[in-house]
Design a protein around this nucleic acid. Structure first.
Length: 376
DNA sequence: AAGATTTGACCAGC
DNA sequence: GCTGGTCAAATCTT
């Protein structure tokens, strides 16, 4: 694969500059404490700074994504009018499966997606919802399912519905825990760069009720600058585990999930585990960025839930960040609060910055030895 | 008809 | 060679 001629260097430089800017914005966000810090009202100018910083960061992220797309188009030689990767591949190759190029529409080597932000969430659902799968309110398209070695349940592979049309690289994997069928492991990779609007999670009356009681945490419908950690989490308690509030965490919509099925029920975000990075876009409150690693929900018939978030974008001093978000729900108020508040419910899980395997171990079941796996 | 899902096969990393 | 991730044709759904 050769670098596309001409603008390659310039584009790299642009990408570098944009990345720097994004990093600076991120640091700025880190400098300005969240409104919830110390439960003190934040001076208006700081609020403004946060707003500007987040907008700035969103802008950089979008620009980076756009530049990458341009670079890919220029360098990959596949600058076809259609953004279908297949059409480009097949038109240039000998055709057929054997000539498939391991790049997608963004020119990103598929295996290189390991470099994309990746984080894991765990959800517990009510027993009645075992037939359900989590719905985070975003549009995903299932592109595969595979039996995983040692796992009783197959893993589903989803990508953004708008991958082809908008080049959105977000993907997620959904796997039910074999130790607890009510728990789903959701592994997200890549941030949404598309402009889809996050709809309210389907059939989640409880969640909707919580929103109605306060704010509209959905990024897509909310004005650009909201403080989700304050707004959408009214009534919830969250703990940061003594860690500084992460700018990466602020802004993550934590309420968009549901299980679109009967009993709407109770689904419990059990844990978030990062893999070193949070989605950059996740901290932006714009329709274009809503990859949300954090989760909030109401619990129908659940006693508590906890969310553990691990991993940051590697900012100095915060790379080991882990934010423990836990909440207990009593009676009707299924609320959740993010960070900076004392915890009155605590989940026994710990957070990891590691991968899914580690998360599994948190549930006390390292991969069992069930055999079903592999390609047919 | 268009879009989504299913499922067997291919491919890359370990 | 094994395994997980992705592709893509076939099939299903709307």
């Amino acid at each position: 694969m050769q670098e596309g001629g001409g603008g390659g260097d310039g584009m790299h430089q642009l990408l570098s500059i944009l990345a720097d800017g994004e990093e600076q914005a991120r640091r700025l966000l880190g400098e300005v404490p969240a409104a919830a810090d110390d439960q003190l009202p934040l001076p208006a100018n700081k609020e403004c700074c946060r707003a500007v910083a987040q907008q700035l960061r969103c802008t950089f992220l979008k620009a980076i994504a756009a530049a990458k797309a341009i670079e890919a188009a220029a360098g990959g030689g596949g600058a076809s009018g259609t953004d279908s990767p297949r059409s480009a591949e097949e038109s240039s190759g000998a055709g057929g499966v054997a000539t498939r190029v391991a790049q997608d529409s963004q020119g990103i080597p598929k295996r290189s997606r390991k470099g994309l932000p990746r984080w894991t969430e765990k959800f517990r659902i009510a027993e009645a919802s075992f037939e359900c799968t989590p719905d985070d309110g975003l549009s995903w398209r299932k592109y595969g399912q595979k039996d995983i070695l040692g796992a009783r349940f197959p893993r589903g592979y989803y990508r953004c519905t708008y991958r082809n049309t908008q080049g959105c690289q977000a993907t997620k994997q959904v796997q039910r825990s074999d130790a607890d069928q009510a728990v789903f492991d959701l592994t997200y990779q890549g941030e949404h760069t598309c402009h889809q609007k996050q709809r309210p999670a389907a059939d989640a009356p409880a969640v909707a009720a919580a929103r109605d009681g306060g704010h509209h945490p959905l990024a897509a419908t909310a004005p650009i600058m909201q403080e989700p950690d304050v707004q959408l989490l009214a009534g919830l308690r969250v703990e940061t585990g003594g860690l500084p509030p992460s700018s990466s965490f602020h802004g993550h919509d934590v309420s968009g999930f549901s299980f679109p099925c009967a009993s709407s029920a109770g689904f419990l975000p059990v844990e978030l585990g990062g893999q070193g990075q949070l989605p950059a876009g996740g901290s932006c409150f714009s329709p274009a960025s809503f990859a949300s690693p954090a989760v909030a929900t109401t619990l129908a018939g659940s006693d508590y839930f906890a969310v553990t978030l691990a991993g940051t974008r590697g900012a100095p001093g915060t790379s080991e960040l882990g934010e423990v978000v836990s909440a207990a729900t009593s009676s009707s108020a299924a609320a959740l609060a993010v960070s900076d508040y004392p915890v009155y419910g605590y989940h026994p899980y710990q957070l990891h910055q590691d991968d899914d395997d580690d998360l599994d171990t948190l549930f006390g079941h390292p991969s069992s030895s069930h055999g079903q796996h592999g390609d047919a």
